[in-house]
């Protein structure tokens, strides 16, 4: 419990130091990006792939900012890292704290549930875009950030609020802990 409270405290003090934008601007910008991608690319799978790639690139940069500003230095331990991701990462960058549930026995898979999020306010998906995963960018961010910490993960959206579910759920599966290799 104290570890969680400690992380929450770190998140609050870091959050107060960061530059902020109105969530409306953020929502609109993200919506505009997705809309442009849908217009520019022919099929929805490609849009999902692009969002995932963009997220991956964002994630591998954000992780350094987060670690530098919070002073955290975690080992590749899935439970602790996922607590940092939810309690610190999502808190300081999106202002939300998703809940972690359904840990499996050896702590390699977990589900993140988002009740509400600035990304999906006022968003309605037309039926022609049933295959679009609007949250794919978030999956990419998690994947990119954890990759930099030496953990290769797979993120899948298992439930989507925009498609009628209660919460948006992302399933994170640890595939391997990567050992750094010396370049010579």
């Amino acid at each position: 419990m104290s570890r969680e409270r400690n992380l929450a405290k770190i998140a609050e003090s870091t959050f107060s130091k960061l530059d902020k934008v109105h969530s409306e601007i953020f929502t609109m910008t993200y919506g505009a990006i997705v809309t442009t991608l849908v217009e520019d690319l022919d099929n929805v799978d490609e849009v999902n792939a692009q969002l995932d790639k963009m997220g991956h690139n964002i994630g591998e940069r954000l992780v350094d900012e987060l670690l530098a500003k919070t002073g955290l230095n975690p080992q590749p331990d899935m439970r602790y890292v996922m607590e940092i991701v939810t309690r610190v990462g999502f808190r300081i960058y999106l202002g939300i704290t998703p809940t972690l549930s359904n840990w499996n026995a050896d702590s390699t898979t977990v589900t993140l549930s988002f009740r509400d999020s600035a990304l999906s306010d006022w968003v309605e998906l037309p039926h022609t875009l049933d295959d679009l995963s609007y949250f794919q960018l978030v999956c990419g961010v998690i994947r990119g950030a954890l990759e930099m910490l030496g953990m290769k993960v797979k993120c899948t959206i298992t439930a989507d609020k925009l498609k009628g579910a209660q919460t948006t759920d992302i399933l994170v599966e640890l595939q391997e802990v990567m050992q750094a290799k010396f370049y010579n």
Binding site: V63, D64, N73, P74, M148, L149
Partner: peptide, 9 residues
């Protein structure tokens, strides 16, 4: 003086 970050830097 060393600092090793969790990202391997």
């Amino acid at each position: 003086h060393l600092l090793e970050t969790a990202t391997g830097l």
